[in-house]
Design a protein around this nucleic acid. Sequence first.
DNA 1: TTTGATGATGTAAAGGTTTTCATGAATGAT
DNA 2: ATCATTCATGAAAACCTTTACATCATCAAA
Lengths: 382, 382
Amino acid sequence: MNDVKVYTNGKAYKPIENVWRCPRHLLKAARADAIGRAGHQLQHHKLATIEDVAAIAGVSIATVSRAINEPTKVADETRRRVTEAIARTGYTTNAMARSLRMRRSNMILILAPDVGDPNFSNILVGLETEASKRGYGVLIGNTQNDATRETDYLRFISSNQADGLILFTGHLPYGFGQEGAEARLPPMVAVNEPVSNSDVPFVGVDNFEGSRVATEHLISQGHRRIAFIGHSTSKAVNILREKGYRAALEGHGITVDPRLILDGDGTTESGRAATEHMFVRDVLPTAFFCVNDATALGVIISLNARRYDLPREFSVMGFDDISFASFVTPSLTTMKQPRLKIGEEAMDLLLALLAGEKPKQNEVLLRAELIVRNSVARASRD
Amino acid sequence: MNDVKVYTNGKAYKPIENVWRCPRHLLKAARADAIGRAGHQLQHHKLATIEDVAAIAGVSIATVSRAINEPTKVADETRRRVTEAIARTGYTTNAMARSLRMRRSNMILILAPDVGDPNFSNILVGLETEASKRGYGVLIGNTQNDATRETDYLRFISSNQADGLILFTGHLPYGFGQEGAEARLPPMVAVNEPVSNSDVPFVGVDNFEGSRVATEHLISQGHRRIAFIGHSTSKAVNILREKGYRAALEGHGITVDPRLILDGDGTTESGRAATEHMFVRDVLPTAFFCVNDATALGVIISLNARRYDLPREFSVMGFDDISFASFVTPSLTTMKQPRLKIGEEAMDLLLALLAGEKPKQNEVLLRAELIVRNSVARASRD
DNA sequence: TTTGATGATGTAAAGGTTTTCATGAATGAT
DNA sequence: ATCATTCATGAAAACCTTTACATCATCAAA
């Protein structure tokens, strides 16, 4: 229309003729002014930008940015004007622009094989709480241990959409771990299951110690013939818990009877099968210490089916304290994993790594808590 | 050093004297070339950009962008060269830059009062699966029904960090819902609990119909005196389920006995209390239909404590099929919420809204499935 | 041969920040 | 009065895309 454009924002800016030299914060003054007049009500999807704020406050965008991020670096009066302008426009800094510029998204990606798993969701609470407290958001990725899905999620990392990684999977995402790819690994922390063959820091429960405590509890109730259900040569968790069991027995001068140690993969079915197997061979304990609650449930189901009176005739102890533990009959005595705490600690560690700190130790082990319910009683026989 | 800079990337570009007119894709040729020589191994945190790819492929960045996003619009041979350059550099498009430019993050924010709730995590699986299938990521926010935390999370929306919202909370986030703020509402879908006093689309189970089916199952087992535990005048879920219960009774010509309808807020404790109350007043049913499994658990605990033989003396029916339902004794007959499906449908609906489609209906109701276990038996008396 | 249409590609302008460097005023030391 | 510091601020570059528009070659139709 007209060749020479005039910009005003009510603060008596002079018309400028060299348009391409017009200070950037004036270029959009008209628009900002419109916003100003309309109060804090904005156009549908046109949000206020830092330029709008700058124009209203009568300062440059650099100053606005500083007023927000380093308040001490701007004069009191200026800061006041900026703050007011922000309130008037309802301005929020655009996270995308910020991330782009800072090469940092303030997002953490959580990779889990099964998001529906109760163990996951409980730790998640801790992770999320800590992250949010520190200004980070959490993104979740359900991998189902599928290589494709894992690599899919790597784009969050390599596209700068996430700064760090929490691994529930027990292994590096497929595509990492390759030689040469080392440099591309973002800061990460493993949780729930340590990452095998790697130096990824791990936060979890102290399985050895917890298992020892559990076994000692059974011993303290007079049990001498204690079975361990859930032997495995591959699963790190199972191996550690078995070690704790053995340590407790040996600590009390009780000889470990290999016939009382049965295989199990941690499923309910494996607990049931192991118990049945025990009755077939007719080598019976007075108490069952199970590698986890799911296994313990299998044992209880099997014993209930055989019409034994629990815990009078057999004691059963689990590990984990998963949600149903208090609902089985008899309710399960077990070791409670401090899941909330695990989540918080893991996130705390990850954020420290992001801040450039070197981890003092490669694993953080938290103590499991003995939860006494009704599945353990004093031994009624030898 | 020298005033005239020379840019080469091995493809015989001529030196250019007007530096500020130098084509952008040449400006960084040297760097890209270095990357090229080093194979796909990158500097620690310097990822390849679209310019690197462009320089290697010998095209402009516009063409690279098109080759990626609208492959049909570039010549076959060019596309081939670009693809190869991408492979060589290990390029991934920077999500932040993309989002900034497109004003769209491809992220969905999920707001839930309790992330640890099993109902949440199961629906989450469906949400995540569908989102990821469609190229969206999910961000989770644990609000604990805290106003501060809810407003905190709104920055994800107002800073363009999330395009849409899934609400588990049953209400609009604090700060929305105000007058005038209408325009700022992003597309959203409610799940688990409908949002009261609003037209936010809801995806959930058909409570009325499911409840009717449940009650009919009890009737089909010969029960006539069926209690409803969980009456409420405020909770939408409870109200609907009670309506289904009444409809079933009336459909079979059974008079509703108000003395068999007891208050309850859906907690285990409320189920226990209601049952005790019933025995105090000595008006007994032959079957208990509970508003949900948690309530049913309370009923079972109470009945077990009174040494009744279940399900012979009393039948108990729940609703939801939460995880422990199969572990209680007797294992609980209940209506299963199709949680995975709910999650998928909700996300599907939200993405449709994002794509600009108008929802055909304001709520999508999915059918609950009858799960027969051991807590319901044929009525042994009137 | 001219014109018009089509198709492939390049140029440059957003998109909204943060931050380096430059500028200029005010303050304190000499 | 002069000079060196310090302090508050502004200009402009950089972060990396997508896309409207312009350009140019090619080919078909007139």
